[in-house]
């Protein structure tokens, strides 16, 4: 709290990109599809990457871009974007090494590199679950198009409500944009405000993470008028 008070009463300088800014070089999210797989099944990785000029890009990592961090004995199970789960026998052995119960899913930590950035992603082996879905999506009160990078027009210089059906105490929601200023970017009902001084075109994205390492994202091109 001392730090918070300090932030309020002193001043900051320098251009620091806010966490909702899409026009910033970084890895935004890594997705494993599916995030939980049974023994012997496969999961595929893809990466959402932000760029300053060219906007969002979904990258399928190559063989040089991924590594199993732990357990190190499964290094050969990951080839590029594809992870193949070990069989039941090997899985039980790993459970024993990690002190897990006989039916516990085994976390496989994977490192992913995109450009010069690194990210960690966990794939769970031993049970099954899918990535979440974006339910109840609303942009300015209406459902947005489902096509990736489809064009959305939003009114300028007013608060544009954004909504996705999620529980903020459980899920992690991020609304991101390179057009305008995002408010309450990390809760399910945010709003976008495009001031006259802001870029009038760009992209809008939403990323939702659930508690089971599931990830879903959607992004659009956006124009303020």
């Amino acid at each position: 709290m001392k730090r918070l008070a300090l932030v309020i009463l002193a001043s900051c300088s320098g251009d620091i990109a806010p966490p909702w800014q899409l026009a910033h070089e970084r890895i935004i999210a890594v997705r494993a599809t599916p995030p939980h797989i049974p023994a012997g099944a496969t999961s595929t990785l893809d990466v959402l990457v932000g760029h300053v000029g060219s906007g969002l890009e979904v990258v399928i990592p190559g063989p040089a871009d991924t590594t199993v961090v732990s357990p190190t004995g499964l290094t050969s199970n990951l080839v590029g974007a594809t992870f193949t789960a070990p069989g039941e026998t090997q899985l039980d052995q790993i459970r024993g090494d990690l002190g897990l119960g006989p039916s516990d899913p085994v976390p496989i930590e994977v490192e992913v590199v995109a450009d010069t950035f690194e990210a960690l992603k966990t794939i769970y082996v031993g049970d099954s679950s899918d990535n979440p879905t974006l339910d109840g999506l609303l942009v300015n009160g209406v459902p947005p198009p489902t096509d990736t990078n489809a064009l959305i027009t939003v009114p300028a210089n007013v608060d544009v409500p954004l909504f996705v059906d999620a529980d903020d105490d459980v899920d992690n929601v991020n609304w991101l944009t390179s057009c305008g200023t995002m408010n309450d970017f990390d809760i399910h009902d945010a709003f976008l405000h495009v001031n006259p001084s802001d870029p009038q075109t760009g992209q809008l994205a939403v990323v939702l993470r659930d508690e089971s390492a599931g990830v879903v994202w959607q992004f659009w091109s956006v124009v303020a008028q």
Binding site: I27, A29, E118, A119, N174, R209
Partner: peptide, 8 residues
């Protein structure tokens, strides 16, 4: 920094 994509 290194991103932990699961915890964001």
């Amino acid at each position: 920094g290194i991103l932990n994509s699961d915890t964001n």
